[in-house]
Structure formats: C-alpha cells, structure tokens
Design a protein around this nucleic acid. Structure first.
Lengths: 195, 195, 195, 195
DNA sequence: GATGAATGAGCTTTCATTCAT
DNA sequence: AATGAATGAAAGCTCATTCAT
C-alpha cells in the first residue's frame, strides 16, 4: 500500500474513532464520517470495505497505542507499586486528553459485540494492550511484589476499575477531577494485588 | 392501572430486558420484542410510549431488583469483609442465573447514554442500587473496618471490577467458571478497601 | 334516540369541532377526542360510526348554527346594505368568539374534500347556510338594491372574502383587530354588489 | 448544486405539487411521490430532507411563478381597472390549466398551518406573490384610481374571492365555466376598490 | 482514486377501528 | 351504554452499501 494511502487510512481511523466514541457505533453513519473528512462516501469504502471492519481497525489502533505506552512503563526498572501508579496515570491522562480512546472501549467495543465477532474474536484485536498488562503482572509476581493469582482476576480489576471511573467521570458524577483520584486508586489497586 | 395490565407490563419488561441484553439496544427492534411476546407492535406502545422509555423502565427494574438483594445483605450483622464476599457472590450468581441483568448494564446502559438522557439523568434510575452500596461502604467506614476515602473510589472499584469480570466471562476469556473467582476477587476488594 | 343520548352527541360534536379546528383533521385522533370528553374510544363509536361521519355531522351543525343567525338577519326589514354589514359583523364575531366554527371551514372542510365525499356531496351539509345567503341575495336583487348577476359570483365574494380575512387574522398578519375591518369590508362588498 | 440535480429537484417539486394538490398533504405519502417519479424513497430524501420542507419549497415555487406573472402585468401601463381584469384572468387561467397551483394554496397551505410554521412564518414563502399585489394596489391608490384603505382589506378581497371561486368550481357547483365569470368578478372587484 | 446519486430494506411510531367483557 | 386492550397496516425517515461516471 502506498504511503499516501496509508496516511489517509490513519486520518480516517482517527476521525472515525472520534465520532464513534462520542456518538456510539449506531448513531455514527458512514456519511457522517465521510463528511467530517471532506471525502466522498464511495471513496471511504475504498479504504475500509465495511463499517464493521473500520471499527475493528480502530480497536487495533487503540490497542496498539495504549500497548506502546504500557510497554514503555514495563521497560523501566520501577517497582510494581510505582508501575501501577504510572499505568493509572497514563489511563486517566488518556481519558482526559484523548477521551475518544477510552470511550471507544466503553461505548463501542463493550456494547456491540457482534461488530467484532468476525475479525476480533477473543483478544485478536486487543492483544498488544493485554499482553503488556500481562507482562506487568507476571513480572510483579515473579519479583514477589504481587500475589500470585489468576491473571484475569488482576486484569479485570485494572480494566474494570479504571473503565468504571472514566464512566462515572463521563456521567459527571465524580466530585473531583479524574486525576485527583490517581493516588487513592493506585493505592487501592496495589493493596488488592500486592503479595 | 389495572392489575392485569401491570402484570403485562412486567412481562414486557422482562422479555425486552432479555432481548436488549443479548442483542444490544439498537439491534433489538420493537417488532422483535412484540413478536417475542406474541403481541402486536401497536399494543406494545400502549404499555410504553417509546423504546427509550421502555429501556429506562428496565433500568429501574434492575436497580430495584439488585438494590433489594443488597439491602438484605446490609441488614445482616456481618463484618464488611463478609459482606463484600456476599455482594460478589450475589453479583456473580445473578450474572450466571439471570445474565440479562448485568449484561443490560454493560451493553445498554453503559454504552447508550443518550437513551437515558431524558428521564434517567445522574443516578435517577439506578438510585436504589447505588444507595445500598453507599450504605454498605459508609457503615464499614464508620466501623473502622474500611478506609475512609471518596465514595466513588470505592464504588468504581466494586462496579468496574465486577462488571469487568462478567464481560471477560461473556467473551469466554476466563479459564475458570465465574463463581470460582469469588474468593480471589472478594479478597482483592477487601484488601483494596480495608482500613 | 333518547334525549340523553342526543345531548351526549351534541357534546361530542362540540368538543370534536374544537379539536379539529385547532389541530386539523388528520392531527386530531379519535383517542384525543375521547380523552377530551372523559369517554372511552369504544363508546365514542357508539355515537358516530366513523371519524369521517363525525366530521360530516360537525359540518351540518355549523351550517345550521350560522344559517340560523343569517335567517334572523334575513327576517328583519333592513336594507341590503345594512344586512351586508350585519352579516359581516356576525361572521367576524363568530370568528372571534367561537373561532372553531370558521376554522373548521378553512382547515377541515376546505382541505379534506374526500372526508366529505360520501355524505356531503355538493351542498348537502352546508345547505342551511348557503340557502340563507341565497335568500339575502335574491331579495336584494328583486328589490333592485343589488345588481342581478350569477349567484355564485356573489356567494364567492362573501365567503371567500370573509374567509380570507379570518385566515389573515389567524396568521397574525392584520394590523388591526378583525372587527375594526367591519366597516371597510362591508362597504367593499356593498360596492361590489350594488345595483 | 449540479445542474442535473437542480433539474431533478424541479421535477420533484412539480410532481409533489400535483399530488399534494389533488390528494391533500396528509393523504399524499412520500412513497406515493417517489413512486410517481420512479425514484426510491431514500433518494427523494437526498433532495428534500423532510416532507414539510418539500411542501415549503413548493409554496415558494408557486409564489415565484405567480409573482412573475403579476410582475408582467404591473409593468404594463394599463389602468387599475384593466389590471384587475388581467389579474383575474391570469388567476382563472392558472386554475384551469395548472389547477394544482391554486389547489395547493387552498388545500395545503391554507389548511396545514403547522407544516409551514418552521420556515414559512408570516409571508416568508409567499413574499414574491404578495409583493406584486401590494405594488398593484399602491400604484392604483397613488393614481387615485383606487380608494385608499388598509392593504389587507384589498388583499383579502382579491385572494379570498378568487380562491373562493376556484373552490366552488372544484366542487362543481358553478353553473358556468370558470372563465365565463371573469367579467362579472373583475367588475365586482373594481367596484369594491375604486376611488 | 474519487464522486455522490441511487437503492430498498428496515426502523420507530401512529391510529382508525374492533370486540370481549 | 361503556370500557380500553388489541390489531396491523402504513406512515416518515434512515443508512450501509453499490456503481456508473
């Protein structure tokens, strides 16, 4: 694929991500996306052959984006406790600065399972991201900083907790800014997971 | 409203809940629901005057159902630690036996905010449920069993964590049955919240 | 028909008239009318066997009501010029005090010809009213006060002109109150028709 | 907008006008219009984004069409009396040859005020037409051919009278052809308005 | 690659009318 | 006479996708 086409694909992914995240999958139409990009509907289909496939590519993009950030954390020599705080920080920062990424998880991925049925089964499209959480966890366990338990007990805690907070924030139910919760929440997670 | 009509309303709520939970809000049509109930579309509208309002009533129903269960737990003289385990148990049992309740939260409520905009703002429709969590938490704090912190830090942990586990279960990613996670997860939550 | 039933019929006619006149024929539903009368839909159908027939009865009612008023004028020994002024006055007073009568003509009768096709063909249902205009006109002609011309040239002038003014008034386009136009318009009509 | 698309819009306007005028607004459905044009429903919505807006565009079209004809009359050096006859002639000719224009006024515009509420308030969409009547009237007054009176007294006479005649004609109540009334009616109007 | 008119199935919602009670 | 739940056809409108240019 030509470089220029590849770049256009990236632009589409980012704009569609923004729209899906703020309006939901079914309320965002292909014509909406095309118009937002000053592009014709027909041409959009030259880049992604269906709406579902576009959503799947977006999921991969997010997973890759967040995976990369987590990888940087994993590559530092910090303690598990410090890494937890870093992860929470990254997550909340992303939720504040590029809220579309987390919102896409909550509003599109979580809610429209059938869209991802053919192409993103299991963890196919969120692999990069999950892998880094797994690396973080297993290193903590082998260092004896973290308690040895089923990975998904830990993964569910991380992802559910952080997602839940972002949801509450989106609903304007929180009494403080999201980042003011970083300390409490990091501590809670650490307490839950520590050896 | 006549008793018989009220009972029919309940039947509609339960059937619609089942369908929304398994197919999502936008992929469940009013004709689908009507057909599932052997009822005409027009008559369905005699009971609920729009699809959104039907979804809102379902949300109230779930909140009331779960709120009642939590209330029973709150009224026992158990320690906070024991109550946490009870709550996790109730939640996972519900997820296994009546999965539509939890799925509705994840697939409909969480993801289609606009549906609930007019009528369920803030916590209007989930009030009963949230209130019980709040009571549980504040009693634990005043007993000095739980650490005093922002309520939403605790609420997000509970709801996000449990919801996250149910999601992973629904995705068939868990390696064990959901109820086999009860001990680990209760312990993690307790560790996170204890004084 | 029993007296009591007849009275209920009159109440229905008047309420339905009010609703049809202010919302139009198609935007007024049978359930709307029933609710407005604290009556069940089914029972309404015991009085009028279809929506169209209800509208036709209303038309007869209006024609009779206005016909009676015109008859009183015709029975006075006034000059044609004075009668014209009386007719204009009656019409505008009705438009101001019971606007539903004139509005029904404009919004329902004029616009939904098919509703009146079977049952009110020709002048079948507006007979009383038209007859009085005819009597007025022919007396004027035989007195030599009015010019002898095709009756409909005169009838169209009366009805079109007055209806047009009420429409303009309803659109809030008039710069004065409707009754302030009485003198000008009576004079114009007289000038148009006089011998 | 491309030329071809613009032309298609015109075709839609003309066909929808025909249907609305003969069946009324509510009894003419979008599928009816689309079928009449050998066009899909969806595509019709690419041209006009709602049924109401389509009706509003039709109103503008008629106002412009008739306004243009009146303008030609106004631009001749005829006396007011002669102009009145011309206007009546044009109106009745239009009613005979393109009856849909006048019928639309009577059956759609007059009777379905809510359809025109958002977009055609006041005289917004009939401006071209009304303006020419106003020019005719004011020139007559300033020439001293016509009596100086409130414009709407004159406007209501013109429009109401002519509309009323067309209605009677549509009801097949007239004993002569519409154009045989031209002389009488022109004379009546002139008598009503002359100085 | 790019355009956008065109399709048509399918959506939510409405409502005149019926009928068992 | 009275009720109102039930019917079901049909309305206005949407949108993923295609295809001739």
């Amino acid at each position: 694929m030509s470089n220029i086409k590849n770049q256009r694909r990236q632009e589409i992914i980012q704009e569609a991500l923004r729209l899906f995240a703020s309006n939901g999958f079914h309320r965002t139409t292909i014509p909406d996306i095309a118009k937002s990009l000053n592009m014709s509907v027909g041409n959009l289909y030259n880049y992604f052959k269906s709406k579902d496939i576009l959503a799947q590519e977006i999921l991969r993009y997010i997973s890759s984006y967040l995976g990369t950030k987590l990888k940087e954390i994993n590559e530092t020599p910090l303690s598990s406790k410090a890494k937890i705080k870093q992860i929470v920080t990254i997550y909340f920062q992303t939720a504040q600065n590029e809220p579309e990424m987390i919102d896409f998880f909550l509003r599109v991925y979580l809610a429209n399972r059938d869209v991802f049925d053919n192409g993103c089964e299991g963890m196919l499209c969120v692999n990069e991201f999950v892998t880094e959480i797994m690396i973080f966890f297993e290193e903590g366990v082998s260092n004896k900083e973290l308690k040895n338990q089923d990975f998904f007990s830990a993964f569910g805690l991380f992802m559910g907790y952080l997602g839940g907070m972002v949801f509450l924030n989106g609903e304007k139910l929180l009494t403080k800014e999201l980042d003011e919760y970083i300390d409490d929440i990091s501590q809670n997670i650490y307490n839950a997971l520590k050896a």
